[in-house]
């Protein structure tokens, strides 16, 4: 009898708690939902509408008062435009190289700083500076370093490396190095992006390394495994999860990055990426429909790549 009544009162308490949680949860989340609805969901719907309609900047004041002019022309023009495909290729190359470089550098640094030494805290903090630096400051500094007239890189190259003339690092589509053509400006932008983003990879991998217990490594070392074997066979497998996550995030972020390239090269020297295309269509060509279509196509490519990635990583987990 007593146990039964005790049980009901507990269940009652449970249901009142869940009801209270329900109400409070919705109240607390309401402001977030308003922001998300206004600034993300509504724009997402609108970008689809715009992409399928004929609309330019001059039409903005009349927006919502006139019926929509539906069309597929924006997509037709984009897909028929060779510069669209070129920008897509550049974007893919740019994101892939940055992803590999950023995560790779972060990994090497995290491993190098794993064992404590005097001053490690300060070294860690200093390595984060390129990530914390406002983008405009980073760009100004790099543009100065690479300037053909007064930049330190060109001055050094001409003084000590025997360069015959100044190199335009930020507006050279291809240059030959020992007979091999390389996309110079694109590589410079990639290096810049690695410079600013590797610290974040470093932070994440360092955080994960703190959860790696040294006992297995000690056992392996006692069994005669060398440092390289321990790193590749014991530490790396434990880091795989965070490395894959970082690759994914870095790829997504770089795929849509605008500031770095726009500020460094304005798209010169073969660095015209998709994000710049969206901007040019919107601002320079004043064509909202076309800009929306470019943006939507960009998202479709990204979502398709993500789907492939998720499918591939699922299968890999299954096999293991």
């Amino acid at each position: 009898m007593t146990t039964a009544s005790h049980r009901t009162s507990r269940r009652e308490r449970h249901t009142t708690r869940s009801r209270r949680d329900n109400r409070n949860g919705l109240i607390l989340t309401a402001p977030t939902l308003v922001v998300v609805l206004l600034a993300s969901i509504l724009p997402l719907l609108l970008v689809i509408v715009f992409a399928f309609s004929e609309i330019r900047l001059v039409d903005i004041p009349r927006l919502g008062t006139e019926p929509i002019d539906w069309t597929l022309d924006n997509f037709r023009r984009a897909l028929a435009n060779p510069s669209f495909w070129q920008a897509l290729g550049t974007t893919l190359l740019y994101s892939t190289l940055t992803m590999v470089g950023s995560v790779g550098v972060g990994l090497v640094l995290a491993l190098a700083l794993r064992r404590p030494f005097r001053g490690r805290g300060i070294v860690r903090a200093l390595l984060l500076v390129p990530y914390v630096l406002p983008i405009i400051a980073a760009v100004t500094i790099w543009q100065t370093m690479l300037n053909p007239q007064y930049g330190i890189v060109n001055a050094f190259g001409r003084e000590f490396l025997g360069w015959e003339s100044a190199v335009g690092f930020l507006n050279t589509t291809t240059t030959e190095v020992w007979g091999v053509p390389i996309p110079l400006s694109l590589l410079v932008v990639v290096l810049f992006e690695i410079w600013t983003s590797a610290p974040l990879s470093f932070l994440f991998i360092t955080a994960r390394l703190q959860g790696v217990t040294p006992s297995i490594e000690e056992a392996a070392a006692l069994d005669g495994a060398n440092g390289f074997q321990i790193t590749t066979r014991i530490v790396m497998p434990q880091l795989m999860g965070v490395i894959l996550l970082l690759c994914l995030l870095r790829f997504i972020w770089t795929f849509q990055s605008f500031n770095e390239i726009y500020l460094l090269t304005e798209g010169a020297g073969g660095t015209q990426v998709m994000a710049l295309k969206v901007y040019t269509e919107l601002v320079t060509r004043a064509d909202i429909g076309s800009a929306a279509a470019y943006g939507l196509l960009m998202s479709v490519v990204l979502v398709a790549l993500l789907a492939v990635y998720v499918a591939a990583s699922r299968r890999k987990v299954d096999v293991e």
């Binding site: 600034a39 724009p43 970008v47 715009f50 849509q256 969206v278 929306a292 998202s299």
Partner: peptide, 8 residues
């Protein structure tokens, strides 16, 4: 991709 939402 934030850039997509910038247009709308």
């Amino acid at each position: 991709p934030g850039i997509v939402l910038s247009v709308p």
